[in-house]
Amino acid sequence: MNIDEIFDYTSFTIDREPHIVLDKDVCAGCDQRGCVNCCPARCYTWSEAEGKMTFVHDGCLECGTCYVVCQRNAFSRWNYPRGGYGVAYRMT
C-alpha cells in the first residue's frame, strides 16, 4: 500500500474549493502537529524551513482524524465537501 498511489486505488471527485482551510498562524505556533503523522491520506505536510503547514484536499478521505487530533482548532473551515464532491468509495 503506497500512499503516493492513493489515486490509483480510491476514487475522488475533486472540488475546486477546499473543504478544509487552515489558519496558518495557528499551525505555525503549534508544537504537536499530530495532523501530519495521523492523517491516513498524508494530506498535511509541515515545512520546517518555511515554518509552514500545507493541506492538500485532493486525496482527503473525509475520515475526521485531523478534526479530532487538532486541539488548537486551527481550522478556519472544516466542512464536508459539498454534495457530490470528495471521496467516492466503490466497495469498502
Binding site: M1, I6, T10, A41, G64, T65, R90, T92
Partner: peptide, 9 residues
C-alpha cells in the same frame, strides 16, 4: 491485488 484504500474515525 489492492482494490481500494479507505479510512474513518
Amino acid at each position: 491485488r489492492l482494490q481500494e484504500y479507505s479510512a474513518h474515525v
